[in-house]
Each structure stands twice: as structure tokens, then as C-alpha cells.
Design a protein around this nucleic acid. Sequence first.
DNA 1: TTCCTGCATCGACAGACGTCGAATCAGAGG
DNA 2: CCTCTGATTCGACGTCTGTCGATGCAGGAA
Lengths: 122, 122
Amino acid sequence: MSNSSVTVLPLADEAVAPCCPPLTERPLDAEEAERAAQMFKALGDPVRLRLFSLVASHEGGEACVCDISDVGVSQPTVSHHLKKLKEAGLLTSERRGTWVYYRVAPSVLAAMGRLLTARART
Amino acid sequence: MSNSSVTVLPLADEAVAPCCPPLTERPLDAEEAERAAQMFKALGDPVRLRLFSLVASHEGGEACVCDISDVGVSQPTVSHHLKKLKEAGLLTSERRGTWVYYRVAPSVLAAMGRLLTARART
DNA sequence: TTCCTGCATCGACAGACGTCGAATCAGAGG
DNA sequence: CCTCTGATTCGACGTCTGTCGATGCAGGAA
């Protein structure tokens, strides 16, 4: 089941895309908002959110397309959504033989989590 | 400027909308994905994200519409987006005299942040 | 009352988006 | 070679969405 060869993600110091400060810290400017909104938008579709969750929670940190295709839409649509998630920088893909494996891009969760960090009340 | 009469939010124990488990914990089902995606979608527009950030980072935790209307779109459009954010449960509004004040709905940041919590690798 | 200002709603429009079936590409295996 | 299977791309369709100007509504001030 679980791939025992999976190691802890590198998670290098720079691996974190420093998109933006927390939403509560200061107003985002137009450029920051554009970038951050792109990530939120990618997760703003139920099917994509399920796909992302399926990949993120899958054993070994990766999932074959064939493993996550039961979300109620056709297979081309699944592929379309996975592409969107990849373009948004949320997933990465790798072909190994017949199958294509997707995994969560490193540091994405941390970056988005930081965006939603509540500030301490002054 | 900042309203000194503003008190700490109640933040009742139930105030936290327990939308969903972290995306990395288990796959979201269709229902959970629908609800969570609605929030992400609301933040998936650059203008809305800026408006949310403007409110979230404003002194006193609230902002008058007139204070956050410089985002490059017309006034009706700003109103439209604020309504969307309210419908998504991310903002609340209150009219006081001539002005309408928006503030971040309690616990929303925490709830979304928890969704993006990375699981500890087993 | 009348006027003015801040904000919301309405109606319309162009563009973006999600979905599908059909076709195409990429490997594995015979 | 050919064939089969997994996955992507293509083309088309209907729907949703962001934007605007015009209009309407609520409160304060004269």
C-alpha cells in the first residue's frame, strides 16, 4: 500500500513561494491579488477541490489519474481539471510508464495557509 | 479613526464553522467539496481578494465601503463583490447611519486555514 | 419638506468556465 | 508491425460571471 520509500519532502528554506503577506496584515496590491486569486480560484471548483484533496491525502503523497477519476465527471474533464491545478502551481505531474502520477506541489499548502493567518489583535 | 468602542469579538465556541477536515487528511466528499469550494471561489477573484484584504487588515477589524472603493472598478461592481463575499460567509455588514461597515466573519480565517493544514508525514 | 450623498439593485453585455464526445498521443505487449 | 489501454487535446455547447451605466433606496442636512 503505502510506498515505504517515500521520504520527507525536502521543504528547502526557499521552497516556499513567498506569494503574499497574510490577508490580515496589509491590503494586497493588484499584482499580489492577481497571483493569490489564481490559487484560490483553482480550488474554487468542487471537482478540482476533490481532486486536489484526493491527491493530497493519497498514500505516498501521489496518486495515479486512474485512482482519482471517480468524481462524477468524464475522464477528459478530470484531465482538464488536473491541468488547471497544474497551471495554478498546485500540483505537479510525472509520467511513469503507462500511468501519470500527480502530487501536491511543495510548499503550496504552507503558502496558502500563511495567507489565511489571522493577525494578533493590537 | 479607529473606533475605540469596538470590543473583542464574542468568538463563541460554536462560532467556528466546522466545514471540512484538512485537505490532506482524507478525500473530501461531494458535499464537503461543494461548501469549501464556495469559499475558495469567493476569494478567487482579484478584486474580491483585495476587498477582503482591505477589510481584514483595516483598523478596528472593519471598514466602510467608502474606504475600500479604490480597487479599479466602478462602485456598483464593488458593491456586487462585497455582496458575493457576504453570501459566501466571509464578511458581515452593518449599517451605521450613512455608512455601511464590513468586517471579516469570525472564524472564517481559522476554518480555511485548517483546510490547508499539512498533515504530518506518517 | 427638499436636496445631497453613500450604497444597493437592475438590466444588459462580453468573456470566461465546466462539461461532453470524438480524436489523438504515449507506452506496453503481443 | 498491430492492438490495447491510460491520458491528453480538440471542438463545441450552454451556463456562469465580472463589468458597466442607469436607477432606486436610506439617512443626514438645510
